[in-house]
Design a protein around this nucleic acid. Structure first.
Lengths: 210, 210
DNA sequence: GTCTATAAATGGATAGAC
DNA sequence: GTCTATCCATTTATAGAC
């Protein structure tokens, strides 16, 4: 318990952020400051010394997650790859990255988004990234497909699944190829124009109450 | 505020669930019982009469969301479509469905998942669906691609985006076609086998501390 | 079936000792 | 730089009236 031993303030801060992440992952956003503090081997008072309020702690944690995510993408950028779609390819590869640090960045941020400030931050970050991707030089449809697929794979852990299966790996490889040969995608025909299905109104039926 | 007027218990229950959804969407999981109750034109005591605890209310709400999601997929099933991949196609179409009820089912469930019981429920449901999809008769890679893309599109609203752009619509149509002609996907070449890139270690670099 | 009033708990934040 | 003790606000949940 007396834990001043050989730990710099930065170490403690980091330990607190890590602990906050673990606590939230396992107990949800309701994890109390006391819990988080003990998890980091610090008292509640000690925590408050480093982060003025719970919201600040959570926001800082979210920021760290987003920065880490950015870094993962940056690390996946291939310096030799300068053609259109290079950022998109990095985004795609980042999905398969064994984060090492945390099992499910996206899932965690999602939990943190119950704090309004975090939601704002995350959306701003997403918009920024979207804009960069839009300027990456790919045809809109191919971009939409690739980004959707990448997002879907990243969110898999939240639902208990994994995006690191062999099938996913192969999908990523093919999608990467697609970004280099967008015309391959354009060559795939439409299923049938939206209003062309004879029967089956496709409109949403009542839906089960509510 | 005397609100017994012409409303059956079931009506009240439903109103409470709707109010809970709205409240959580706008104020996060911290929305208080009092808020939710007033939102439904009922007092806190009234709420507790219908749902014994907040957790029960939230769990019930999650259940309703999942049921609605199931129903949307069921409604998107084309009775005339009996070939392999029919469920997958319905899953895909469901993404574009203008839910009418709620703007972002996925986003809401995500917020509700801070309650452990909800997380369990949602994961069980996801596993069930995954199993059904796996038995839908498509090659694993095509299935993985389509499901990832669909999931990515559903989660877009949470990040402030939309999955109802023309590009997304076209992507869905092409993906549907792909489920009917899986060989089209198999014909797209790999980018290059994982360990084939001369330079650029592609391993994750340190990542920004943490 | 719903409301008011109140009890009981939880948890965030402060002040000051060490 | 961290801990203990305490205060205070919020919110869940209960009891009993209407």
């Amino acid at each position: 318990m007396g834990r001043t031993a050989g730990r710099s303030p930065e170490d403690t801060r980091r330990a607190l952020l890590t602990a906050a992440g673990d606590a939230v992952r396992s107990r949800g956003i309701h994890a109390s400051l006391d819990e988080i503090a003990r998890f980091a081997g610090v008292s509640k008072g000690g925590l408050i010394y480093h982060f003025a309020s719970k919201d600040e702690l959570i926001l800082e944690l979210a920021r760290a997650q987003l920065v880490a995510f950015e870094a993962t993408i940056a690390a996946a950028l291939d310096p030799a790859d300068t053609g259109p779609g290079r950022l998109t390819r990095a985004y795609l590869r980042a999905v398969l990255t064994p984060d090492g640090d945390d099992m499910a960045s996206m899932a965690l941020i999602t939990l943190l988004m119950t704090v309004p400030a975090v939601a704002e931050l995350a959306r701003a970050e997403a918009a920024r990234l979207d804009a960069e991707l839009a300027a990456d030089g790919l045809p809109p449809d191919v971009l939409a497909l690739v980004v959707a697929a990448a997002d879907g794979m990243s969110s898999a852990p939240m639902w208990g699944g994994s995006a690191r299966t062999p099938a996913h790996r192969r999908v990523v490889e093919r999608l990467i190829h697609l970004t280099r040969r967008p015309e391959l995608w354009e060559e795939i025909p439409w299923s049938t124009a939206p209003p062309a299905d004879p029967r089956a109104p496709r409109t949403v039926s009542p839906g089960p109450r509510r």
